[in-house]
Amino acid sequence: MRPNAIVALLATTAVTLGVSGWAPGEPSPPSGTTPATVPTPGAPLDEDNAPPDLTPAPEQNIAPGQNPSPAATPTASAVPTPSRVAQVAFTSATFEKYQRNADAITYKPELLPAGADATVLSTSRPEGRTTVLLTVQGLRPGQKYGAHVHEKSCGPRGEDAGPHFQNVPDPKQPSVNPAYANPRNEIWLDFTTDKAGNATAVSTVPWRFTDRHPRSIVVHSQHTQTHAGHAGAAGERLGCVNVDF
């Protein structure tokens, strides 16, 4: 991976995951706020679906010169910590012609050159929000591309990746209804390359992956359309990147 992709990736990772537990668009908590290990209203429950029990241990009558028993001094491990673990997926790959174990495939080398790079970082946060970052390098300069998260893994043909992943699936497929095929219900990552053929796209949606997980990102030949009857269409499928979301 080239240095500028690494810098962009590290910066986005730090902002997206956040060492303090908040994400872009949220105000930073003021100094002196309650630490994340102390439950606050709306905090996650522990494993038995009950609020963590932080009731102090009963006091002991300790004679002068005696040490308290271990039970009188709770350790940090005795206090459950609410889970705030994000689901993270990362892929960095070079486009090549299809072969069985390829991570990134080009179906149209004249439009998406073999040897171009793609890097994907996805974070799906426990409170219900997903951010996906796509960085590409070495594509055709000054070119508009469409890109979306798709349901299935890449295959020998572009259509093998299946339809766009939708949080609320459209009962009518193929989905061209703007009520379903839109950048809030799907993950769109359209971009335009610079004079060096590089670009970065990022999408944040107000939902997270649960029992259904997409498997790839497909790069298309045009930016995505939004009008009824063509919503979600973006021209030919030029390439595909496998991502274990």
Rank of each mutant, 00 (worst) to 15 (best):
Q166N: 10
P74H: 09
N67S: 13
A71D: 14
V205P: 00
T226Y: 05
A57F: 13
S77E: 14
D244C: 08
F209S: 10
Q87K: 02
G32F: 04
A14T: 04
G235E: 05
T94D: 07
N242H: 06
L121S: 06
T226Q: 11
V176A: 06
G239A: 05
W207F: 02
D48E: 14
A199S: 06
P141W: 02
S216R: 08
P56L: 06
N167P: 11
A78C: 13
A89H: 02
L121D: 04
N49T: 10
N242L: 08
A179R: 08
A63T: 13
I187V: 05
Y107Q: 00
N4H: 15
A233S: 15
T55P: 01
A116Q: 07
L9N: 15
G146P: 04
Q166T: 12
V136G: 10
V176G: 01
N167W: 13
D46H: 09
H220V: 06
R237M: 08
G128Y: 07
G115M: 04
S216D: 02
A181L: 05
G197T: 01
V88R: 01
T123I: 09
V243S: 02
S69P: 14
S92T: 03
H150E: 01
Q99A: 14
A234Q: 05
K97T: 14
S83I: 03
L54A: 12
R84F: 03
P39Q: 14
I187D: 09
P183R: 09
A147F: 11
D48G: 10
E159M: 09
K144F: 01
D48W: 14
H150G: 09
P206M: 08
D160S: 08
I6D: 12
V120Y: 02
T192E: 13
P113L: 09
S122N: 12
F245A: 12
P113C: 07
K195T: 12
L54M: 12
P52T: 13
S28K: 01
D160V: 09
Q166Y: 07
L189D: 06
V15K: 08
A86V: 08
V168S: 11
P163D: 03
A63F: 13
A78M: 14
I187G: 10
P82A: 15
G235L: 07
W188L: 00
P109Y: 10
Y107S: 01
A93V: 02
A72F: 08
T94M: 06
F90N: 09
A76F: 06
A104Q: 05
Q137D: 10
A161V: 05
D160C: 06
N61W: 13
G197W: 07
L111E: 14
A86N: 09
V19E: 14
W22C: 01
Q137C: 03
V132M: 07
